[in-house]
Amino acid sequence: MNAVVALDTLIRDRRVWRGQPAALPSGAQPTGIAALDAALPARGWPEASLTEILLPADGVGELEVVLSTLSRLTRSGQRVVVVAPPYVVYAPAWQAAGVDLAWLSVVDARDGDIAWAMEQCLRSGSCAAVLGWPVRIDDRTLRRLQVAADTGRALGFVFRDRAALANPSPAALRLEVGPGVLDVHKCRGGNPPAPIAFARS
């Protein structure tokens, strides 16, 4: 027995299951939505992983879920890249939401290049978060993105139509955003919690 592992570490990493739930320390990448943070096993976004955000239509609050994270990252001088946004990224509103525009970059890409651009940004290690709106993306490409996010220690966000829920996905977190509700369909490190009410600002 040459390696002594502290019990605290085991419990914090959720490698030991205890009978009664214990209050866990806050995660390294809080979402900024208290109810969501409490429900997720990582107490925030899964670190260095891909998160899939599924929506029925544009404008249901999908950006509100991530904006507080983007604001936190850009204000601490970390780069956030938006790949192939479906509309114009409206700078006044993003700035009003607290995003430091100096650390926000937009990448225009054609259909076939979106996943490539996302992978490059995730893998580079110079971006803290990468958001992408791929038109068509398959299981293998998602897995590549997941590996790239892990290599580059970045948060990856893929925004897709909720029709994709029917297919399995390698993403560490699958979050469905509906009008007034957040529904976690898959989360690494625990069972998906019940749907969470989501009050829009």
Partner: peptide, 25 residues
Amino acid sequence: ALPWPQLVERLRARLGEDAVYGLRV
């Protein structure tokens, strides 16, 4: 890790000269 300026060069080389930009109010 690939520094940001080199990443931008790589993206521009494949996606076009104007493909990467910042925003201002």
